[in-house]
């Protein structure tokens, strides 16, 4: 049984770096594979990725199928599809998981259609029923409902949202096998990637974490401290309108009725009172954390966690504590 592949994980990489969602998929995949009493495999495509393949093992994979070739350096969806389909045909996994990143959500349906199998989008939870079939749980109707979905065909494919599943701890002593496979070479795919342009700047409406400040901030310079916090959390800065109007920060950071509507996983509001026009822009955040001196501020009653106190007393210890957790300081 154990040499049958229970779960296959697509190890998305960009510029040779494995995407964080892959480790999370390996974490969940490990659990599912163990319950199925089968192995957990990963598939990695790209160029010069031997070390990355090993990482996948440290994070839980039993077997990594590696196709290492210059033609796979960039993400050409048609090339990727052909190579992935080939591995899937060989491995025959019960379950095939792909990160619900933009790359994953563009690639997975192509692969599913090629395999003529079902695909569930953007899952936030996965489980098994008594027969070992995958139960896929996903939001639909713009997040207003949750649906449970099962797939009658194999592999049961799902894309899974980032920052939902828990990765295992990295364990360099884990053993596993790296299986190298030859690429399918295609001369032309109809796709040429002419250029890749890094996206700089804020995209507040897509941010997972927003560290926002309001008039509780005393000077424009103080945005620097908040920015440090935002960066540590992989997030971006947000602001209430008065600070934008005062020119302390650009309008692209404004949250609210006359600014951006945001929906991050975590919204931290420092010194924001929570006027209706501000709430309009952030009320759909998953978790709202408010830091405010005033226990009567309206933001308190819409928050999941709140701190009654001076933001200036909390911000530094908070940054410190995060650095500790990230191993940046002792």
């Amino acid at each position: 049984m154990l040499n049958e592949c229970g779960v296959l994980v697509f190890a998305e990489q960009e510029n040779g770096r494995i995407h964080g969602v892959v480790y999370e998929l390996l974490g969940k995949g490990r659990e599912l594979a163990d319950r199925l009493k089968k192995s957990l495999c990963a598939i990695l495509l790209g160029y010069n990725l031997w070390d990355e393949a090993k990482e996948l093992i440290y994070y839980g994979a039993d077997k990594v199928y590696l196709i290492d070739h210059p033609s796979l350096k960039d993400f050409d969806i048609v090339r990727y599809k052909h190579n992935i389909v080939k591995i899937v045909d060989e491995v025959k996994p019960d379950i095939f998981l792909i990160g619900a990143t933009r790359i994953g959500r563009s690639l997975a349906p192509r692969v599913a259609a090629a395999l003529k199998t079902g695909l569930t989008a953007d899952c936030v939870d996965l489980d098994l029923d008594e027969e070992g079939n995958l139960i896929q749980i996903r939001p639909a109707f713009s997040g207003n409902i949750m649906a449970q979905i099962k797939t009658r065909t194999k592999p049961q494919m799902a894309t899974v949202r980032y920052r939902i599943m828990k990765p295992l701890n990295r364990d360099p002593s884990r053993r596993g096998e790296i299986v190298v496979r030859e690429p399918i070479l295609l001369e032309k795919t109809g796709i040429e990637i002419l250029d890749k342009i890094e996206i700089g700047g804020v995209n507040i409406s897509e941010a997972d974490v927003i560290v926002a400040a309001g008039r509780g901030l005393k000077s424009p310079e103080d945005f620097k401290i908040l920015e440090e916090l935002a960066t540590l959390l992989g997030g971006v800065l947000g602001s209430s309108r008065p600070l934008v109007d005062a020119g302390w920060i650009g309008r692209e950071h404004q949250v609210g009725f006359s600014g951006n509507v945001v929906k991050p996983k975590v919204y931290m509001a420092f010194g924001i009172s929570g006027a209706p026009q501000h709430l309009f822009g952030m009320r759909d955040s998953d978790i709202i954390i408010a830091i405010n001196k005033d226990p009567s501020a309206p933001i308190i009653s819409v928050s999941d966690y709140y701190v009654i106190g001076d933001l200036y007393e909390i911000i530094h210890p908070l940054i410190n504590e995060i650095k500790k957790v990230k191993g940046l300081v002792k």
Binding site: R163, I164, K166, D208, V209, L233, G234, G235, K265, V266, D286, I287, I289, Y305, V307, G309, E313, I314, H316, P317, L318, N320, E321, I322, V325
Partner: peptide
């Protein structure tokens, strides 16, 4: 403040940030 910071970090960890 330190306790508060630790608690917030705890929330952030719980939510996989």
């Amino acid at each position: 403040p330190e306790e508060v910071a630790r608690e917030i970090v705890h929330v952030l960890i719980k939510n996989k940030i």
